[in-house]
Design a binder for these strands. Structure first.
Length: 206
DNA sequence: AGTATGATCCAT
DNA sequence: TGGATCATACTG
């Protein structure tokens, strides 16, 4: 087993956001705040592809205060508040000027389980710990304050543990919560690890 | 300045 | 099936 290595900017700066979303399954996602390490293995992601994707916040080249971070060079965090309650964490991908991103929807927890349980307000470790995009951020202590954080720093980063996930172990399907996006809602841009109990329970509607 | 709406989650 | 709860984005 090779030593874990931090995923470099070059991993996220590639042009195909769908491939990046798929390859992130099996990688590791960590945060370290105040010396507390939390995180685990990525088991569910979604790709959002810039101005030609009706489900993407930057659809039709929309540039607002919220979306401007999406146009940065790959390798920084895009964190936004949804429904007034949950912070959703994305990785900006591709090069400067394009607005692609990958949403992290679920992880299999491996580090800091007790702390994550505490942050989530649960009394025992269960799949609700990190199975859902709003739950992952809560468990890892991520909020909108972390928007724009560089993923090579000491607070939020990804690692490759040399784990190889065969393609047949990855399930592709339509994204969750984007029914308003018309035909683009049908794109199979949600990826999850087959059989993992840590994948979110949410199901896309048509 | 007002308003509608969500890349969600959970209890009912 | 709806309520929580508010930043964002769009309208006038």
């Amino acid at each position: 087993m090779p030593a874990p290595r931090k995923l470099p900017d070059a991993f996220f700066a590639r042009p195909d956001v769908v491939t990046i979303a798929q390859e992130l399954i099996g990688k590791y996602f960590f945060t370290s705040f105040d010396g507390i390490l939390t995180g685990g293995m990525v088991v569910e992601t979604e790709a959002y592809s810039g101005d030609n994707d009706a489900a993407c916040h930057a659809h039709l080249g929309r540039r607002t205060k919220r979306t401007q971070i999406m146009y940065e060079h790959g390798g920084v965090a895009y964190v936004y508040l949804i429904y007034g309650i949950y912070s959703l964490f994305n990785i900006v991908t591709n090069t400067e000027g394009t607005a692609d991103a990958v949403l992290i929807r679920a992880i299999e927890p491996t580090e800091g389980l007790e702390e994550m349980k505490l942050r989530r307000g649960l009394d025992k470790i269960e799949t609700r710990l990190t199975a859902g995009p709003g739950l992952v951020t809560q468990a890892l202590g991520i909020s909108t304050h972390h928007n724009g954080t560089h993923l090579q720093g000491s607070e939020i980063w990804f690692e490759d543990h040399g784990k190889v996930i065969p393609e047949e172990e990855i399930v592709a399907g339509p994204r969750v919560g984007v029914a308003y996006a018309g035909a683009d809602a049908l794109l199979p841009w949600r990826f999850s690890l087959k059989g993992s109990k840590w994948v979110s329970k949410a199901k896309p509607k048509y």
